[in-house]
């Protein structure tokens, strides 16, 4: 199973993103600045957008899911129950997973944005996908929600998961690291080796590297373990 970008390019006004690379099974993290093209690449990976140039090749991929950055853009139901049912899921377990038990009759827009994101992610994580694309899955979540989401992503054992994010505090354990640099998608390699070459790395990781401490991966547990080592 793999997804390949073959010399793709997208150009809009003053915006340009280009790159090549193969996404194999495992968890991939793609980081990039605001406006660098993360969402554009996510849409292309999901087959919802086309590059101006180049080819996107999918091999052995059946089911594809794109989690959009803004959870409100996914809504179709007027209650939490009907929203969950629209994913062909049983509401009760999903509500429990989202920490929203007993609120099935509520209007989704009565939730805070973080709660809405939790609901959306609970729907996503309740079904398996060959290719799961998560566009800023951590935005709007509090630290507990981010850690839970990171754990849920980290527990995915099959298929290709691609996370497009600028999150810099709570991340999952990932297998591969990519970075968008000045309009180009760059494959940095496998983690942990790739962490050293990460240009716009999270502030906490940069601080650890400055002190000569290298975490094994990006999860909160890995960062806390490394933080303890700074005082060895």
């Amino acid at each position: 199973m793999e997804l390949e970008f073959m010399d793709i390019q997208v150009e809009r006004d003053c915006f340009l993103i280009q790159g090549s690379g193969i996404f194999t099974p495992g968890i991939h993290l793609v980081s990039g600045r605001v406006g660098s093209g993360k969402t554009t690449l996510a849409m292309i990976a999901a087959g919802l957008g086309m590059p101006d140039r180049g080819v996107v090749r999918r091999q052995g991929i059946g089911s594809v899911m794109l989690s959009m950055q803004f959870p409100e853009q996914h809504l179709t139901g007027s209650t939490l129950e009907s929203e969950i049912a629209s994913w062909r899921l049983d509401p009760d377990p999903v509500l429990a997973l989202a920490g929203l038990s007993g609120r099935g009759k509520d209007d989704p827009f009565s939730l805070s944005r973080g709660e809405l994101k939790r609901l959306h992610l609970a729907c996503i994580f309740s079904r398996p996908f060959d290719l799961l694309i998560l566009d800023e899955p951590f935005s709007a979540l509090d630290c507990r929600g981010k850690m839970t989401t990171a754990d849920q992503i980290g527990s995915i054992r099959a298929g290709i998961t691609i996370i497009f994010t600028h999150e810099n505090q709570h991340l999952p354990r990932v297998d591969y690291l990519w970075e968008i640099r000045e309009g180009a998608l760059v494959f940095l390699g496998s983690v942990p080796e790739a962490l050293v070459g990460w240009k716009n790395k999270p502030a906490v990781l940069a601080e650890l590297h400055k002190r000569g401490v290298y975490p094994k991966n990006l999860s909160t547990a890995d960062i806390l373990e490394a933080a303890c080592r700074t005082h060895d």
Binding site: C143, Q169, A203, E207, R211, T220, A227, C228, T230
Partner: peptide, 15 residues
């Protein structure tokens, strides 16, 4: 004792 404690302070404190 919570995840609300700043990450950079944890490195500063070694916690």
């Amino acid at each position: 004792q919570t995840c609300f404690y700043p990450g950079l302070w944890r490195i500063r404190d070694g916690t």
